[in-house]
Simulated scan of single mutants.
Amino acid sequence: MPTVVPSIYGTSAFKKIDANWAPNIGHTTCGGLPAYVAGMLGLTAEGAATRINTGGGLAGMRNAGIATGSWVHNGAMERRRAVMAGGQPARPKPGDFYLLCSGAVDRHEAGCNCIAPVKLEDAHKYRGATIEHVGIVVSAEGNLWRTADAGQGNQQVQLALYVWRQFNPATQQITGESDKFGKPMRRLCGWIDVDRFPFLT
């Protein structure tokens, strides 16, 4: 990760994250950073079959986690089970690939596409929230988290940066990302546990 973060559009380091991005192209580059890191970690045949290293879209990263049993959904039911068992709700570890969605709490629990099946014919069941941002966890201690994220900047210049984010355990929201309309994209949907994903290293 330090070979490409921090970096700015147009540099050789940033081209490793997304060599095809250009101003006003209509999307950001956030998915390119986890894809690049996944490729650098090396993939088993099972991992390669998910195409996690190709930057194939935000839902593609979630699908790769589901397909390999490494997806951790950050839902109320999962957190409640952990507490009832006498533990603490799960949190991502350094190196895990995290996903944020657009949904408020009720929309996340009932209709977030982060829990959607891969089958397109079932997509209509999950209109409540969509995946809006992906990145890599650097630290998730306490309520001040640090992440590594591409897709920073704007539609003219994209950046890959380390970002400090305030985490609210009561609402599961994180500061630091907003969509092109200025609406927050703060709900921690879940993450890929990199220790469970079939990487070579």
Rank of each mutant, 00 (worst) to 15 (best):
D149R: 14
G39F: 11
T29M: 04
A35S: 15
I25A: 09
W164N: 02
A38K: 02
F14L: 04
Q156L: 13
E177V: 11
G128A: 09
N113F: 10
G60R: 14
N168I: 04
M1E: 07
G42P: 08
P117A: 09
D96P: 04
G182Q: 04
H108D: 08
R79V: 10
R79C: 06
T54Q: 14
N53E: 14
S7N: 01
L188C: 07
S102F: 03
P2A: 14
P23E: 07
S7M: 10
P2E: 15
P94I: 04
I131C: 09
G31S: 10
F181V: 01
F199R: 00
A116R: 15
W145P: 00
A45L: 05
N154Q: 04
W21L: 09
T3R: 11
Q166E: 03
M40L: 15
Q156I: 13
D149C: 15
D96H: 05
R187S: 11
A67Q: 15
D106K: 02
K93P: 00
R107Q: 10
P94C: 07
G128I: 11
G128M: 03
L41Y: 10
A160E: 03
N20F: 13
V134C: 13
A104Y: 07
S7Q: 06
K15Q: 12
A170P: 01
S102R: 02
A35D: 01
P198D: 03
A123N: 02
T3L: 13
R79H: 06
G86F: 11
V138A: 10
P184R: 10
G42C: 11
I8R: 15
P2M: 12
A38D: 03
E46L: 11
R127W: 08
V163W: 02
G153E: 05
M77L: 15
L159S: 03
P89C: 07
Q166N: 09
K93D: 05
A90P: 00
C30N: 13
I136W: 12
D106V: 14
M1Y: 08
L188Q: 02
Q88T: 12
A85G: 15
L99K: 00
N20Q: 14
R51W: 02
K93T: 01
R196I: 05
L120M: 12
T28K: 04
G65W: 07
V134E: 14
R127F: 11
L161H: 04
W191N: 07
D18V: 13
A90I: 05
F167H: 13
M61S: 13
L159Q: 11
I17N: 00
P198V: 10
A35R: 00
N113V: 08
E177A: 08
P34D: 07
R107W: 03
E132G: 10
Q152N: 12
Q166D: 05
D193R: 01
V134R: 02
M77Q: 15
K180I: 04
V72S: 09
L58I: 15
P117Y: 07
